[in-house]
Design a binder for these strands. Structure first.
Lengths: 198, 198
DNA sequence: AATAGAAACGGACTACGGTCCGTTTAGTCT
DNA sequence: AGACTAAACGGACCGTAGTCCGTTTCTATT
């Protein structure tokens, strides 16, 4: 056991750490050069000077790799709506927080576009992920705070979040020329109606 | 030009028709035996006694094949909400029709499960398809009839339909044990709130 | 420093969806 | 019937994600 490890976390071998770093660097390079589509697992292995098996051992799948690449920005997003300043973070009325949540999520999806898409590919990709569960719980909590009284607020939260599905948002933006602003407005309308109704 | 052809439809060669039939039969056989997952394009070609190129020439992609397989049931579904008896078809109040639409769609997704999922795989699979556009227009129309006054009812229709996304529905059902009834109830709640709010 | 065992490595291998293009065949026109 | 053309055919081929297992490397222990 290494001294700087918490007892719960399995120790990571030094070569593993080194390779993980190499892979992450190589992945960002490949994406910078040719976009997300240019990042294939074979190319990544080659670019990082590592065997293909190592790539899969590390990330499990291509989607898992994308999730890792998004890890920092996702954590930042979560920090915003959990602890950040109002109206996204605590302190604002729940309805305002809901509206801000959607707007921020839309901005996030727009910013990381293809990366988010690739992270959600693969069976059950975008629904099983811990982050999705967190969004659901967060929206559910805000609904409750807003006085939402109805059976199964959790299902309603899921429905609202389904509205923010990256594939849908990016499809509307890229193939129908819908702007982020219009999407945010539509989200506000939806949330307002759901929360306002008796 | 064949006499029994409408001028707009390109004629279909007899061998092509024969092979299409063979392929459809073979596809249903494979699915019956081993489920949708067992239907690979190679196996299908072999089972039908046809070259692989022919399979792709006919259906374009695996998702396209699934869409073809679903064609009849999808047409039936459309006929129901377009021309069928109330509350799904015309004659009932728009809000009731919306509620019935969701319930029917949920039942449909449950019935054809994996087939629907496979039809929606492949880039932009479930959003580009004509059927999806029809659902959107239908929901939009019902919203308008229900007195929904708001900018962009079309976006709201899309949001509502996003809630009925097969992947989401089946994930809730299969991995969380949610029943169709609860999903239908949640849909009714959502629709009621959206339509009722000022 | 030597050793043992666990963890990580690497790359050949598989399965699959999809493409390409030379070959065959159905339908038509004379 | 014979020939001509456009359409359809077939299956080798490609790129990709993901698996498997024999080999190598790290680290703790003595």
């Amino acid at each position: 056991m290494r001294p700087d490890m918490t007892p719960e976390t399995a120790a990571e071998r030094s070569d593993a750490a080194r390779n993980r770093e190499r892979l992450l660097v190589a992945a960002r390079e490949l994406i910078e050069q040719g976009g997300v589509a240019a990042l294939t697992m074979d190319r990544l292995a080659e670019q990082a000077g590592v065997g293909k098996g190592t790539v899969f051992r590390r990330f499990g799948s291509r989607a898992g790799l994308m999730l890792t690449l998004l890890n920092d920005s996702e954590a930042a997003f979560q920090a915003q709506f959990l602890f950040g300043p109002p109206p996204l973070g605590p302190g604002a009325p729940p309805q305002d927080r809901l509206i801000a949540f959607g707007a921020e999520r839309i901005a996030y999806v727009v910013e990381y576009g293809d990366l988010v898409l690739a992270a959600g590919s693969s069976p059950g990709g975008k629904l099983d992920v811990p982050a999705a569960a967190l969004w659901d719980r967060h929206v559910e909590m805000l609904l409750r705070e807003a006085g939402f009284n109805s059976p199964e607020p959790w299902l309603m939260a899921g429905s609202l979040n389904a509205t923010l599905d990256p594939e849908r948002l990016l499809h509307l933006i890229r193939k129908h020329g819908v702007t982020s602003e219009r999407l945010a407005t539509s989200w506000r309308d939806l949330v307002t109606r759901v929360v306002t109704a008796a």
